[in-house]
Each structure stands twice: as structure tokens, then as C-alpha cells.
Write a protein that binds this DNA or RNA. Structure first.
Lengths: 198, 198
DNA sequence: ACCGAAATGTTAGCGACGCTTACATTATCA
DNA sequence: TGATAATGTAAGCGTCGCTAACATTTCGGT
């Protein structure tokens, strides 16, 4: 076989693996191409054979972040249709953000790179999952508006918690906050919005 | 008088002014202490007399960002009490984020620095403003939950727009989206949430 | 089986950055 | 007026992103 000391093998994948580890261990400021190279055991310039720049690597990391978020959501409930089930998915979303803050920030810190196929696929997957829920749960509502509104609340709660703008970081408190907000939003549409939604 | 060439005068304020300019002109990656020092016309180490580190300067910039956001909100409506008025404030919030994306990101990119007095004052001001609105508009609702929910939708919409996750970046489209979501949320509480908000 | 091309890795180095230390100048006030 | 604090400069360390030039390995066509 080969010596296996010069050509690493699949450096591409190892890079995002190492990057993810760095992110979890030391936060996003520690995520440098050089640190990734060190961890993988390769020269500082090697990652540039696989990623055009730091941004590209970050984008790849964000893509797997989206995949893991999606898995987390379907794990909370595969196909929610009641408000309670949907709320449990929302709670999962926010808790994902709180458990892996650095990754979550990476995922949303920049405008989506449309050139990263994995990434657009992953984010559209999340979006589609959400739209499917809305269509199933609220066939009479405007799917776009409803999906947007729900995503916004959940996303906003995640960020406000992340930034310490809200009190109560414990899982129980988070669950309460998210459940309350989602519950309110959901009962709204059945009653009909008081403002014309465009 | 003094020579005015060695001692700058009020370098502290000039630094955040220059930092704000850099932010607006070239985005947040261009916001470095050295660049600020260059723009102010001072040595690279001078800012460290007034700010412990880059983080401290960024925090100061974020503080004035909060003040300007607060001005923007009261300009939209000084004391909203109807859903329409509240929606107009929400629209102002999101448009502030879209007009000054780098500043907005700075403001929410990190957990709030509790040691920065200006900053905690500014952010609590926004929070208090919001709570006052909620108490005035919905005296029968749980103020905390309601304020949190509303802030979350608006904040979420701002970030989703910022990150390109939503279509329609035009002011009109944004207005429609935000108005629709807020309208939905508001009609909810009068109907009563279907989930117990803790 | 060979050999040239493509892929993938290394080395060295440039410029910028955050930050620190030592030193210079100016302002303040007993 | 003169010590001292405040505020600036100069020089330098380590890290980073990125590039260019070179080395090694893999692979495809003959």
C-alpha cells in the first residue's frame, strides 16, 4: 500500500470534522484554517487545496450544522400536526442553539453562500420541513406567511437567549418561553389576523 | 493653547465615531483597532489607552447602536397602542437591521457585556420601551411573555432577512411580512393562547 | 508497464492584526 | 513649580489569511 504520510487521504472531510471540534471546544474565534491544519496534522497551506478560503470552510461547517439541526428537529417530532407537537419542535430548535452556540452563530452569521451546494440543500431542507408542517397543520392559512412567522419567533427566541437578552437559560425556562410564544402565534391564525397580511 | 498634535483631545469618542464609519463603509471585518487608529490619525497602540481590547471598542459601538435603534423606534411611533402602530414600530426595527446590517450584527453577535454601563443602559432602554408598549396595549396579557414573543418575531424576521433566508428584501415586501406576522401574533392574545404559557 | 499530467501536499514568506512593554510627552494639582 | 497621572509613540511578538514555488503521489492513456 501507500506510505500514507504525504497524501493524507480525505483531508476535505477531516477539515470540517476538526473545525467542528474547535468550534465546540473553544468557540468561533478559535476556528482558523491554521488551527484546523494543526489539528489534522497537516501543513498550514494544505486546506487551501480543498477550500478556497476560510469562508468556504466555514460554509461547509455551516452546512453540516444545518443537517444536524434538521435531524434534531425530526427527532423532536417526525411530522408534527398539533400545536403541542409543533411547540416541541420549536423547543428543540432553541435548545440546539443554546447547546451549540458557536455552531449556531456560524450558521446564521453571514448571508447564505449560494455557491455551496451542500449548504443551500441543507437550508432549503429545513425550510421545506417547516413549510410541510405548516401546510399539514394549517391548510387554511397562507403557508408562506405562517411559515415565516413561526420560523421568525423560534429563530428570534434562539438568538435572544443566545445573546443573554432573555432571562432563564435553563431548559425548563426555555421550554416555557418557547411553548408560550408558539402557542400564542398558533391560536392567532385560527382566529384570523387583525391586520391584512399583505 | 496646546500644540494639539500629541494629545489628541477626546480620542475615546473619536474612536467609536471612526469605528462606526468603518462599519458602515466596509462591513464588520474591516473593523480593526489598527484601522480605527489610522482613521483617527493616531498610533496603533493609542486606542488601548481607552479600550482594554477590541471587544471593548466593539461593545461601545454596539451601545450607540442601541441608542440609535431606540431613536428609530420612537420615531416610528412614540407610544404605540394599536396593532397597526405597533406593527409600524416592528417594521422600523427590521428596516434598521437591513439598512445597517454590520452595526446590527455587532449589536447582537455576542453576549451582552455586563461590564459596559452604557451598553446595559441602552439595551434595557429598548427592553423597557417594548414592555411599556405591551402593558399599554395588552393590559390583560402576561407582559413578560408577550413582550418576549413580540421581540422574538421582530428580531427573528430581522435576522432571517439579514441572512438572506427570506425572499423579498424590498422595503415593501419587508413591511408586508412584518405586518402580517405581528398582526397574527397580536390577535392571538385577545383570543387566548391554546397552550399554557407556563 | 510506463510516463506525463493532475491532484495533493510542503516550505517560505508577505502583510495585517491584536496586544504588550518600554519610553516620551502633556496635563493636573498639591 | 515640580511630582505624578494621563495619554500618546515606538518597537516587537505571535497569530492569522493567503500566495507562490516546489515536492510527492495518484491516475489515465498508450
Amino acid at each position: 500500500m501507500t506510505n500514507a504520510t504525504y497524501h493524507h487521504g480525505n483531508l476535505r472531510l477531516e477539515c470540517v470534522r476538526a473545525a467542528m471540534e474547535l468550534l465546540e471546544e473553544s468557540g468561533e474565534t478559535a476556528l482558523s484554517l491554521r488551527a484546523v491544519a494543526r489539528r489534522v496534522g497537516v501543513s498550514p497551506a494544505a486546506p487551501y487545496r480543498h477550500y478556497a478560503d476560510r469562508e468556504a470552510l466555514v460554509s461547509a461547517v455551516a452546512a453540516v450544522g444545518y443537517q444536524e439541526l434538521a435531524e434534531r428537529l425530526v427527532a423532536a417530532h417526525p411530522s408534527p400536526s398539533t400545536p403541542e407537537q409543533l411547540a416541541s419542535v420549536a423547543v428543540a430548535y432553541v435548545q440546539f442553539a443554546l447547546e451549540r452556540p458557536a455552531l449556531f452563530r456560524i450558521m446564521f452569521a453571514e448571508v447564505c453562500d449560494r455557491d455551496n451546494d451542500e449548504r443551500v440543500a441543507a437550508t432549503t431542507a429545513v425550510s421545506a420541513y417547516l413549510r410541510a408542517i405548516v401546510e399539514r397543520s394549517f391548510p387554511e392559512a397562507d403557508t408562506d406567511s405562517m411559515a415565516t412567522a413561526i420560523w421568525a419567533v423560534v429563530h428570534g427566541l434562539a438568538f435572544l437567549h443566545l445573546d443573554g437578552k432573555l432571562e432563564g437559560q435553563t431548559p425548563a425556562a426555555v421550554t416555557g418561553t418557547v411553548t408560550g410564544a408558539i402557542g400564542g402565534l398558533l391560536s392567532a391564525t385560527t382566529a384570523g389576523p387583525s391586520l391584512a397580511p399583505r
